[in-house]
């Protein structure tokens, strides 16, 4: 039971990182990316390769993952600078679909469909450590940074871009630089989440980085509340405990748990959008949350 809870806590922390970083671009910068799992995947593969080829130092793996994911985030920043709204969602979907194919075909880097196996246990400065404390530390760091950025000049610039891009530009804000930086920060964060994920499971394959995963993370942000600090984390906790919660219900056959889970979160997304578009947390602290 402790092992089970520790596993769940680690996953919550990792997905909390993903949701918090996605929230940063969606909620603050108004860049609606449906390709977050791509950067999660890039980080996971990069981190796994570091652990397999060099040595399993968790900090090094996270650093490399952040650099790889953050660097390749230009693929996402480029369309974000060109188009907005529906067009950008379409571009990010396109990126996600191409990346899924690449992940399953670039066997040298990703191990193909079979994935990368036997990733060694992580160490920090030569001492073996669990992933849970690392993930919690990373999550705390990212939430702290998000809160700081949100209140600082950078966050204000992003929010002004979200609400009125032309006005922000007219006031002399460098829109292109701000968007690129925001996307790079979020993707680097997702990369760190990916590296921790790879070290935690000691196995990764393309299944974890498909569009379904991007949508799951998106659902966490939406259900929790976009543009809030704690909403995405709450969304992550809710959606990750859902499958285990459903598993305890006797009348659902085990083979259908996955489908029922998807139906529940699909329904939650739709109903929230109709009745409470601000999400769970956004609704509790009206007005303040998105300010």
């Amino acid at each position: 039971m402790t092992a089970y809870l520790a596993n769940l806590a680690t996953l919550v922390a990792i997905f909390g990182i993903l949701a918090a970083t996605l929230n940063f671009v969606v909620g603050f910068a108004g860049i609606f990316s449906v390709a977050h799992a791509v950067f999660f995947g890039l980080g996971a593969y990069a981190g796994a390769q570091v652990a397999l080829q060099l040595f399993p130092d968790a900090l090094l793996a996270c650093l490399v993952a952040a650099i790889v994911a953050g660097g390749l985030s230009l693929c996402l920043a480029l369309p974000a600078l060109r188009v907005r709204g529906e067009y950008f969602v379409a571009a990010s979907l396109g990126l996600q679909m191409m990346a899924t194919t690449l992940f399953s075909e670039a066997k040298a880097f990703t191990g193909g469909i079979g994935g990368l196996v036997a990733i060694p246990r992580p160490t920090v400065a030569g001492v073996e450590v669990g992933v849970l404390p690392l993930a919690l530390a990373a999550l705390a760091l990212i939430l702290f940074l998000t809160a700081r950025l949100q209140r600082g000049a950078f966050g204000r610039t992003l929010q002004s871009i979200r609400d009125a891009e032309s006005a922000a530009e007219a006031l002399g804000k460098n829109v292109a630089a701000a968007k690129t930086l925001a996307v790079a920060f979020a993707c680097a964060g997702a990369g760190i989440g990916g590296a921790l994920f790879a070290l935690h499971l000691s196995f990764v394959n393309v299944e974890s980085f498909t569009m379904d995963q991007s949508v799951l993370v998106m659902a966490m942000v939406i259900i929790g509340g976009t543009g809030t600090l704690w909403g995405p984390l709450i969304g992550a906790i809710l959606l990750l405990s859902l499958p285990s919660g459903l598993a305890f219900l006797p009348f659902i056959p085990a083979t259908e748990v996955g489908a029922v889970q998807q139906i529940v979160y699909g329904l939650a997304m739709t109903l929230l959008m109709i009745f409470r578009p601000a999400g769970l947390v956004g609704d509790l602290s009206k007005g303040r949350a998105t300010a």
């Binding site: 609606f32 709204g85 529906e86 969602v89 949508v215 998106m218 939406i222 259908e256 489908a259 029922v260 998807q262 139906i263 979160y265 699909g266 329904l267 939650a268 997304m269 739709t270 109903l271 959008m273 109709i274 578009p277």
Partner: peptide
């Protein structure tokens, strides 16, 4: 537009799984 997109996406997820079941 994003509210609309997410709501539609939710419906798509629900129906797809119902059809599968």
């Amino acid at each position: 537009f994003f509210t609309v997109f997410v709501a539609a996406f939710g419906v798509a997820v629900v129906v797809q799984n119902l059809v599968g079941m």
